[in-house]
Simulated scan of single mutants.
Amino acid sequence: MNYRHAYHAGNFSDVHKHAVLALILAHLVRKPAPIAYFDTHAGIGAYDLGSIQAEKTGEWRGGIGRVLAAAAPPEALAPYLAVVRDLNPEGGLRFYPGSPAVAAALTRPGDRLALCELHPEDAAELRRAFAAERRAAIHAADGYGALKALLPPPERRGLVLIDPPFEVTDEFARMREGLRQALKRWATGVYALWYPIKARAPVERFLADLAMLGLPKTLVAELMIRGGDDPARLNGCAMAVVNPPFTLEPALQTLLPWLAGVLAPGEGSGRVEWLVEEPTPR
C-alpha cells in the first residue's frame, strides 16, 4: 500500500487507460437501462497537477499535456477530453480526473458507482471527494475481495475496472484470479483489466493464462511508447476488455495509433487484437 498515484497522474498510461474507459462508458449509457460501475483500485478520484507530488515527476507533461497540445484529435478521444476539460472550466490544465471522476462524469443520475480503495489515506480523501455524490459508495477495502460481495449487481449491466498498482510480484496472478471469481458471479459484465508492460514474457504468460479461463469475447488494446524488453522500465501498457462493446474495436483502431504518434513520436505503437473472438458481437 505504498503506491501513491499522485506522482503519476496524467501520464501516458493514464491517458490510455482513461480514454479506453471513457469509450466503454459512453457506449454503455446509450441504452436507457441503468448501469453499475465498479472500481477495484480507485485512488483519490482526481488529482491536482500543481501538487508537490505531480510536479516532482512531471509525468503528466508527457501524457495529457501532449494530448491537449496536439492538433485534430480523433473523435474516439472526445468523451475523455470532455471530462478533462470539464474539470478545468477556466481553461488550461490544473486538475486531472482519475477513473472515479471519469466514471462519475460519464454516467447518469440513475447509474451507480462502487469505488474501492485500500490505502487508508487515499480512501479517506476519496470519501471526501465523493461526499455529495449519492450515487457513489466508497469501500475502504481490497478491490478483489470487495467484488465477491458486490457482484452481481441488481442493474445487470455495467463495467468493472481492475487497475491495481502492481506493487506485488504476483499481481498478474491476483488479477487473473479476481477476474475468474468475478465472472462466476457476473458473466455478462464488461471487465477492463489494465496492466503495465515492462518485459514482454510476463505479459504473454498473463494473456495465455487469461485465455485458459474460457473467457467470452475479449479484446486487448496495447500502447507502447518505446521498444525493447527492459523489466526495469515502463515501456507501455494495455487494457484487456472482457465482453467489450461492439463499438470499441473500430474506435481503438483509430485512437491507439494517434496516441502513439502524439505520446511517443517515431517510437510509439498501438495495436488492437482479439484474445478471444466470437462470431456474434454483443
Score class of each variant (00 low, 15 high):
residue 95 F to G: 02
residue 38 F to Y: 14
residue 222 E to N: 07
residue 217 K to I: 01
residue 118 L to S: 08
residue 113 L to K: 05
residue 269 S to P: 01
residue 225 I to F: 04
residue 136 A to N: 05
residue 199 A to Y: 01
residue 249 E to K: 15
residue 65 G to A: 01
residue 277 E to K: 15
residue 149 A to Y: 12
residue 252 L to K: 05
residue 112 R to N: 14
residue 278 E to H: 15
residue 96 Y to W: 10
residue 218 T to A: 10
residue 160 V to S: 01
residue 208 A to M: 04
residue 16 H to Q: 14
residue 252 L to F: 04
residue 162 I to T: 09
residue 264 A to S: 15
residue 172 F to W: 03
residue 58 G to H: 09
residue 228 G to R: 01
residue 37 Y to I: 15
residue 250 P to C: 12
residue 276 V to C: 15
residue 161 L to Y: 08
residue 54 A to P: 01
residue 137 A to F: 09
residue 210 L to Q: 06
residue 175 M to D: 03
residue 240 A to Q: 08
residue 212 M to V: 10
residue 202 P to Y: 00
residue 175 M to E: 13
residue 28 L to G: 00
residue 105 A to T: 07
residue 276 V to F: 13
residue 196 P to C: 03
residue 178 G to M: 04
residue 20 V to F: 04
residue 117 E to W: 04
residue 117 E to M: 04
residue 257 P to E: 09
residue 31 K to H: 07
residue 270 G to K: 08
residue 188 T to P: 02
residue 223 L to T: 06
residue 132 A to I: 00
residue 241 V to E: 14
residue 229 D to A: 00
residue 214 G to C: 11
residue 6 A to C: 04
residue 261 G to H: 10
residue 239 M to W: 07
residue 211 A to V: 12
residue 55 E to I: 04
residue 96 Y to E: 08
residue 152 P to H: 03
residue 11 N to A: 01
residue 109 P to V: 09
residue 122 D to H: 03
residue 62 G to H: 10
residue 238 A to Y: 08
residue 63 G to V: 02
residue 87 L to C: 05
residue 154 P to S: 13
residue 280 T to I: 12
residue 276 V to S: 13
residue 264 A to M: 12
residue 99 S to N: 05
residue 75 E to C: 01
residue 206 F to E: 09
residue 240 A to E: 08
residue 207 L to G: 03
residue 124 A to D: 14
residue 236 G to F: 05
residue 136 A to I: 05
residue 23 L to G: 07
residue 188 T to L: 14
residue 86 D to I: 00
residue 150 L to V: 09
residue 186 W to H: 13
residue 255 L to M: 02
residue 205 R to L: 10
residue 117 E to Q: 03
residue 12 F to K: 00
residue 46 A to W: 13
residue 50 G to S: 06
residue 234 L to K: 13
residue 176 R to Y: 01
residue 14 D to E: 05
residue 74 P to T: 07
residue 19 A to F: 07
residue 245 P to Y: 10
residue 249 E to C: 07
residue 131 A to L: 09
residue 25 L to N: 01
residue 268 G to E: 10
residue 27 H to V: 00
residue 129 A to R: 14
residue 51 S to W: 10
residue 126 L to A: 10
